[in-house]
Amino acid sequence: MRHRFANLTLASVSYPLRMMPGLGWLRSLLGNRIGLIGLSILVPVLLLAVLVPVLPFADPFKTNVSVSLNSPSLEHPFGTDKLGRDVFSRTMTGLQTSLSVGFLVAGITLSFGLLFGTLSGFFGGKLDRLVMAGVDIFLSFPSLLLAIGLVAIFGAGFLPVVVAIAIADIPRAIRLQRSLVLGIKSRAFIDAARMVSATPGWLMARHLVPNTIAPMLVAASITAANAILTEASLSFLGLGITPPEPSLGNIIREGQMYLQEAWWISTLPGLVILLIAISLHLVSDGIREVLDPRARKS
């Protein structure tokens, strides 16, 4: 009587079909169309960025005024900048920085989100109120603004940028994990485990985190994409990675001055950022679809 019989959806005419849980989803991701498109962009770009030092690209720091502001050619696929540096190899080097920022931020955010979100959601009470009050305060700042403020304090450079962006993203991750934990906590299998005196540690490690890790990973890949965009914005504003160290943002910033004569300096690296962001989103969509086939319908 309490049970709501499924209405006129697929579920009413067939028993619910769910994907195999466990690690099988990674294999399924390769079989998922959207996930595969995402991976097929992301993986080559990643490889390219990692292999920049060993590939026969032009030296990203070598100036040569004789080829100043040359348009894209076979020799310089992305053209050259005012000082005659090769924009393509600068972009690839910047890409290395971008991806490092993205994955570092995603990793830090995921860890802190899992830790505080789980504790806050599981124990509730004073701890929860304290954590959530902190989260509310941090979420009162628009994220880029918070990062700008923090970078203003920490100073420019790779590490400050990573820390600043992570701090701006962590509250969101905590809130997500907390709400996921609250959802799982009310399910009967938690009662079933408590019924045999399972400790909080057991409950969190065996029941809560395994059931929340998947959506958290989805969120983390989006965090990575956003972090890359934020880093680019910060560097563009002159607050992130500062020249001569190339970053996608500061290359575009430098190119802005020559927008009319040399459109390629600003536009082509931007396209690379867009490509990475899209691929990360596609991968996250793929993971979501594989984990929850119902998401495909909507």
Binding site: R2, H3, R18, P21, G22, R187, A188, F189, D191, A192, A193, M195, V196, S197, A198, T199, W202, R206, H207, P210, N211
Partner: peptide, 27 residues
Amino acid sequence: QMVFQDPYSSFNPKMKIRDIIMEPLQV
């Protein structure tokens, strides 16, 4: 011990049946 009402939410979907039945013994 208890048998729960809803056979859908009373099992951790990420655990195999073996681990589900074994959990009380492990704990």
